[in-house]
Computed example of a mutant assay.
Amino acid sequence: MTTLSGSEILGIRLRHLLELLDGGVAAVYADLGPPGFRPRFTPVVRVLAASGPSSIRELARAIGVTHSAASQTVAQMVKDGLAVREPGEDARERIIRLTLEAERLLPALETEWAATTAAAAALEAELSYPLSRLIDEVLTALDRRPMHRRISDAVARLGS
């Protein structure tokens, strides 16, 4: 039986790490009581709570995700009654704002966010190198040279 090394299963290990982190946060949301609130809603809610109604493009830029990812998250929030879409100045643009239900959740969410920040800092203190710093470095490296390019270059080298 072949045993795969860490670099060979990097994506699997990263997904598992994300499942552990998101699962812990989701469990806290369940404990605090916002029914159906998902960790992926957090950045959108935080931006809207701090900045007020925003377009999908503004949200995506503020939270550092693609337009598509922000749009999908907002669509689920609208479905769950946490956000509404309103027409923008441009007929193609939609402005997103929090519903009263979402605004009522803000005090409990603020408590959770502060606790999550403290827990993340404590986790990083246990590590030999801060995970947040490593993630920043990985994202910067992938901005310089995307994974697709790296794999294509490796295929060309291996095929030669």
Rank of each mutant, 00 (worst) to 15 (best):
A122P: 03
A102F: 01
T116F: 08
R40V: 15
R145H: 12
A75V: 07
P43I: 06
D153V: 03
A62Q: 09
D136V: 11
T42D: 11
I63N: 07
R46T: 08
R46V: 03
F41V: 00
L158I: 06
M1I: 07
L105D: 04
A121K: 11
S128Q: 11
S152M: 12
A26D: 00
S54E: 05
S5N: 08
T73D: 10
E112K: 00
L59R: 10
A115N: 08
A125Y: 00
L32H: 05
A154Q: 12
E112D: 10
A69E: 13
P130M: 03
L139Y: 04
E89C: 08
V155P: 07
R97A: 13
E137H: 07
E19R: 12
L127M: 14
R97T: 03
L59K: 10
A156N: 07
E126G: 13
M147P: 04
R40H: 08
R97G: 12
I135T: 13
L109Y: 05
A70R: 01
I12W: 09
P43E: 04
I9C: 10
L131D: 02
Y129S: 15
H67W: 13
P53G: 07
A75T: 12
A108F: 02
V138L: 15
P35S: 11
E126D: 12
V155S: 06
L158T: 07
G36C: 01
L82I: 01
T2I: 10
S55V: 03
R57I: 04
G23T: 06
G33Y: 01
G64Y: 01
I56T: 14
E137F: 05
A114K: 05
D80I: 04
L105Y: 13
R149Y: 06
A102P: 02
L17G: 07
G24M: 05
S51M: 07
T116Y: 00
A118K: 14
A60T: 04
P43W: 00
A122D: 12
G36M: 03
L10V: 14
H16F: 11
L59G: 09
R144K: 13
A70P: 04
I95W: 03
